[in-house]
């Protein structure tokens, strides 16, 4: 009986830990797409292509992206890790912050809104600011209209 209880307990702990162990960039992408959902109704076309990976707390990654003046862009960052704090910010090729003030971050999501003042290369900086995990998956999708 004791053995059965112990085995059951171990099984429950294993099941509880499964999402953390097997969380993936695909899960992070699901969160990023979830953040994008309300914007699709506003006419944004979300690209199928996306960037993803994992970062430790305090680490950043930069993504270079060609943006066109006349279009409006949203970048959505997602993670599957609970209690992680993530951020996404967009800079122009001179290193000047290029996002609109309605950019936001909350829970599993962060988003940056850009209306480019010039056509050219921009840098999207993704960051895991805090996380209970050693490595935190992230995925970044973008949409335009």
């Amino acid at each position: 009986m004791k053995f059965f209880l112990r085995a059951s307990f171990l099984l429950l702990v294993t099941i509880a830990l499964l999402p953390a162990v097997f969380g993936s960039v695909d899960d992070a992408q699901s969160f990023a797409l979830q953040a994008a959902e309300p914007y699709v109704k506003q006419g944004f076309q979300v690209r199928e292509d996306y960037w993803g990976g994992d970062l430790g707390s305090g680490e950043k990654k930069a993504v270079r992206q060609q943006l066109f003046k006349g279009n409006e862009y949203w970048f959505w960052l997602g993670t599957e890790v609970d209690r992680a704090k993530i951020s996404v910010h967009v800079y122009d090729s001179d290193g000047k912050l290029a996002e609109e003030p309605d950019s936001w971050e909350k829970g599993h999501f962060a988003a940056a809104h850009v209306i480019p003042k010039a056509t050219g290369s921009y840098f999207i900086i993704v960051s895991v600011e805090q996380s209970p995990e050693e490595r935190t998956h992230w995925a970044l999708v973008y949409g335009f209209r």
Partner: peptide, 8 residues
């Protein structure tokens, strides 16, 4: 909101 440096 997003707290980001104005220049990098």
């Amino acid at each position: 909101g997003a707290q980001a440096p104005q220049r990098i």
